[in-house]
């Protein structure tokens, strides 16, 4: 990358217009800002996180090197590592969400009057801000308010109903349900996108051949979205490990609803144990990377062999799913 190839450029303008000079210039100028941002907000924090995880420190003030003590605490403290178990509720929710989304999306493939109204109603929760969702559901679950009133209409007695957000038997389920409420519509749109990429002739041909709807679902719809379903299941695992929003905005992690990230957040910003929080982050990151590698391997061995019942469309959907998978990991 020698800018000064000309020993004596006749003028600055001529020099700047030379192709190779221009090439270097454009590469440098166009990449400077994004690279700086990437360094500043991804890699420097990442390296610092590894470094901090070996220290006992606050944001300001002195630091003390403590070796692996933070990591030991992450694994030994029941409140911290145990909070990963709370994720199981969200995984359960994830399965329900997937099944519902699959059902609704399949129904939309068949002709539905008022399709856009149904779709919009289901999808809109996805667009609502997390904090607003928090308030909506605090209200919804508040004792004697929305949910309780609805259940009373069905003949239940208020005094028999649990405190949805405080009762440790049920509160995590209530929270996971909000997550289902929020994301099902978005999943429907994704699945529907994959299903619609199948030629509609295929459905017509199948109908003419006397396929019933179950057969259409089983042999046309399902193969077309096989990979996106698998992808979603795997994404769900890493997504659930890092579940954060419902407990953070609705219960603030009280009454045993704190997930791993909610714990990490309070360790980092309330008690300011930055070292411990960093160690927690690294442990989770390791878990997520494991999931991602597993998911990559899964795709490589399960789908790349090109089983014979995989249509060209399915291959296309697979490629799309792979793209999604890369980006979905940002979640």
């Amino acid at each position: 990358m020698n800018k000064q190839t000309d020993s004596a450029p006749s003028s600055f303008k001529q020099w700047i217009l030379k192709r190779d000079v221009q090439r270097v210039l454009i590469i440098v100028t166009f990449m400077a800002v994004p690279l700086l941002l990437l360094l500043l907000f991804t890699y420097i924090p990442f390296v610092k996180m590894i470094q901090f995880s070996f220290y006992n420190m606050k944001y300001i003030g002195e630091r003390r090197f403590v070796g692996l003590a933070n990591y030991r605490r992450v694994f030994q403290n029941k409140d911290l590592f145990g909070s990963l178990l709370v994720s199981l509720y969200y995984m359960g929710g994830g399965v329900v969400q997937l099944a519902l989304a699959l059902l609704f999306a399949s129904l939309f493939v068949f002709k539905v009057k008022g399709e856009s109204v149904f779709k919009a109603a289901m999808f809109f929760p996805y667009l609502i801000c997390g904090i607003a969702i928090g308030f909506i559901f605090k209200f919804f679950y508040f004792h004697g308010y929305v949910l309780d009133t609805i259940l009373q209409m069905f003949g239940m007695k208020l005094e028999n109903l649990p405190l949805w957000l405080q009762d440790t038997k049920i509160n995590n389920i209530a929270l996971a349900a909000t997550s289902v409420w929020r994301y099902t519509g978005q999943n429907v749109i994704l699945f529907l996108g994959a299903m619609m990429s199948v030629d509609s002739d295929l459905y017509e041909a199948a109908a003419l051949d006397g396929c019933n709807r179950w057969q259409q679902f089983r042999y046309i719809i399902l193969p077309s979205i096989k990979s996106i379903i698998v992808l979603n299941i795997i994404l769900c695992v890493s997504g659930c490990l890092s579940a954060f929003e419902p407990p953070y905005v609705i219960t603030n992690g009280s009454f045993g609803t704190a997930t791993y990230f909610v714990q990490m957040n309070s360790v980092a910003h309330e008690t300011q144990k930055v070292g411990l929080a960093s160690a927690m982050a690294i442990v989770l990151l390791a878990l997520i990377i494991l999931c991602t590698v597993g998911q990559k391997l899964f795709f490589k061995y399960v789908f790349n062999n090109g089983t014979e019942d995989e249509s060209a469309k399915a291959v296309k959907a697979k490629k799309k799913a792979k793209r999604l998978q890369r980006k979905g990991a940002t979640a």
């Binding site: 990437l38 991804t42 890699y43 420097i44 924090p45 610092k48 996180m49 990490m264 982050a281 940002t330």
Partner: peptide, 22 residues
């Protein structure tokens, strides 16, 4: 580098990003 960055969980990163911002 950009690809790998998408793997890092955002909320976890804020612990150290906060320190840099500070």
């Amino acid at each position: 580098l950009f690809l790998f960055a998408s793997l890092l969980p955002g909320i976890a990163m804020q612990v150290t990003i906060y320190q840099i911002m500070y």
